[in-house]
Write a protein that binds this DNA or RNA. Structure first.
Lengths: 256, 256
DNA sequence: CGCGATTTGTGCACGTCTTCACAAGCGCCT
DNA sequence: AGGCGCTTGTGAAGACGTGCACAAATCGCG
């Protein structure tokens, strides 16, 4: 422990502070660090070096140090970071000191699985409501929660203070659900439906599209295959593209 | 519209299609464009401008044009892009002209849902095998596929040509499964387990962690709350943080 | 008490990604 | 045929993210 109110970030050190506005890339990695830290804590570590933590989190150690430096200076030179303290700091910054209520809309195939996923509960969230538009699903009990009709959203929002909405409906229904969520004051949405949502400014949307992930992998797979197929022809870039169909203008060379 | 010959047996003159090596950011967006294009095609559009397509895909139009320019010039100035042609181009580049076989390991809560997710089938993939380490799950039939034991992976890989492995096991089992997948020649892995996988060079891993997504949203939620809490106070911002649980040195006054 | 081993925090240089802005190209209309 | 409006493709500038390499800080030990 230390009382350094040293240089670095303007002002606040030890105290709890205004949130520094972290780079998005850093924010995206903090949860990763947090998970690694919990593992280390469980394993009995009291301190951890940036090298050790970065290995556990799968990132470059310099990057990790820079990330952590953004939220203040909680390491000790020559020693490393205090695991418990760092956990607390990251949880604070991520807003995990309160257990946020999540409303899950769409209890179909995927939604059902999400409702039963205990990774949410164990990492700072509480599924506070399950909703669906299909009357035949309303009333079903999943994991101790009864599915309610999506039109009850206003009532649900009044009962629980919903912080985050999760959309697990088919794509065509997603935009409407998003609108409904926004209407009851939800400003953070996690969207599993394969479509683009438009929301007013101030509302954050994150998207998870399983097929897209596979398609990205497919690209690399395709690329690896085409590379191993031909030795090391450096020069000819996209010479022969799918030829067959593009009877039109593909023959034009590209200037450069 | 044309069919093209190829896939496994490219009798094509000129040899293998040298894929341009696209920027990762571009690759990550191509699937998005593809989905938007399919929607547009279904809606009867034959051509689409970069403006229109970028709106449908939720990106900046200049970015979209630059992305598309990386894979060749398939637009017509003054008109736009031919929807069908562009679909074909993107599918080719992403390697979706062949339907890739996916092996799904871990048929628990989430894995079960993934096995039943038809978004895979409709977007270029075929779930070729379901595997699990739990003997009590082996033999179960899901969506027409019988769950096999994970140790049968070599046999499975011999039967089907597995292009992508999906890991939906608990975290502690994930690394071992990854090793097994790599051992049978899988070079692309989609990991849903909340842990870091280490794999040999040449193997691509993408990760989807649902809790991380929520935590990122939580950060922004926290931040929005702290901003609205103090409108104009440029200086210190003691937000809604209950000094309570940060038991350490949170009370320290800030030197400045 | 000072020295060396260790590890953080960060300046700097580099690469990648984004965005603007505009010339070049294309089709349509007159 | 020629001009005009629309849209693509891209150069250039800037924002952002990454990683090296090293000075500053701390601990342990002789």
């Amino acid at each position: 422990m230390s009382q350094h109110r040293q240089s670095g970030a303007p002002g606040r050190a030890g105290g709890v502070p205004a949130l520094p506005d972290l780079p998005e890339a850093t924010v995206a990695r903090l949860p990763e660090y947090l998970r690694a830290l919990h593992n280390l804590a469980d394993a009995g570590h009291e301190t951890i070096s940036s090298e050790g933590l970065s290995a556990a989190a799968g990132v470059n150690s310099a990057k990790l140090r820079k990330d952590l430096s953004h939220l203040g200076s909680y390491g000790t030179r020559g020693v490393g970071y205090d695991v418990a303290l760092l956990i607390e700091q990251i949880e604070y910054v991520l807003g995990l000191t309160q257990r946020r209520a999540v409303a899950l809309v769409g209890v179909g195939n995927l939604g059902h699985a999400l409702a039963g996923y205990d990774g949410f509960a164990s990492r700072g969230f509480r599924i506070a409501a399950l909703l669906d538009a299909d009357p035949s699903r309303v009333g079903e009990e999943i994991n101790g929660l009864v599915v309610r009709h999506v039109d009850e959203l206003p009532a649900v929002a009044a009962e629980e203070s919903i912080a985050i909405g999760v959309i697990a409906t088919p794509a065509p229904a997603a935009q409407r659900v998003a609108d409904q969520l926004v209407a009851v004051g939800v400003t953070s949405i996690l969207n599993f439906a394969p479509c683009v949502l438009s929301v007013p400014e101030g509302v954050d949307v994150r998207k998870v599209d399983l097929a897209i992930e596979l398609q990205i992998l497919s690209f690399h797979e395709h690329r690896k295959a085409s590379l191993t197929a031909l030795p090391a022809t450096g020069g000819s870039a996209l010479t022969a593209l799918p030829g067959g169909l593009a009877a039109t203008d593909t023959q034009e060379a590209i200037g450069t």
